[in-house]
């Protein structure tokens, strides 16, 4: 039986495939066009610029089930300088959508932290839509590791 390296590692883990991982690696992933479409829809056709929004994500995720991420957008959050929404996408997940944050003047700061699932090493993308229609984007690659003998 011809063995691929992936087969050897999968079997070396020793476990029968038990549905513990919410996103199984190897499943169909979000096509890049889908991600492009989602961003275009969100941005109302505007081309996202870089700047203003910072996405913080770990370089290496200890486990793909729980990856902490934060976003922060430079904005006074009052008057004309307001963040409307921030879209979070993952370009290698079975479905690229992760979350959409909505802010108001009462937010004080356009910042949020959450924990997300990543099926494999991929980019996490954050797109901020400002009240004046301008759009900004940040992207970080997160390496998702497969553990050893996880029990």
């Amino acid at each position: 039986m011809a063995l691929s390296r992936r087969h050897v590692f999968a079997l070396a883990a020793g476990a029968a495939i038990v549905p513990v991982f919410q996103f199984l690696p190897g499943r169909a992933v979000a096509a890049p066009e889908d991600v492009g479409k989602l961003i275009a829809e969100f941005a109302g056709g505007k081309e996202p610029q870089s700047g203003k929004i910072t996405l913080t994500a770990p370089e290496i995720a200890e486990n793909g089930n729980t990856v902490p991420i934060s976003i922060e957008v430079e904005s006074a959050m009052e008057g004309d300088d307001m963040v409307d929404q921030v879209l979070i996408l993952a370009d290698g997940n079975p479905s690229a959508d992760v979350a959409t944050f909505a802010f108001t003047a009462m937010s004080g700061k356009a910042a949020a932290t959450t924990r997300m699932r990543l099926a494999r090493t991929q980019n996490v993308i954050a797109v901020a839509k400002m009240a004046d229609g301008s759009v900004y984007m940040d992207k970080k690659e997160v390496k998702v590791t497969i553990g050893g003998c996880g029990g």
Binding site: N93, A99, S107, G108, R117
Partner: peptide, 18 residues
Amino acid sequence: CDIDPAISANPYFEFSAK
């Protein structure tokens, strides 16, 4: 927050309020 299945179990949100 509009939440999709890619948010982890026991969803955690940290945010600000003025």
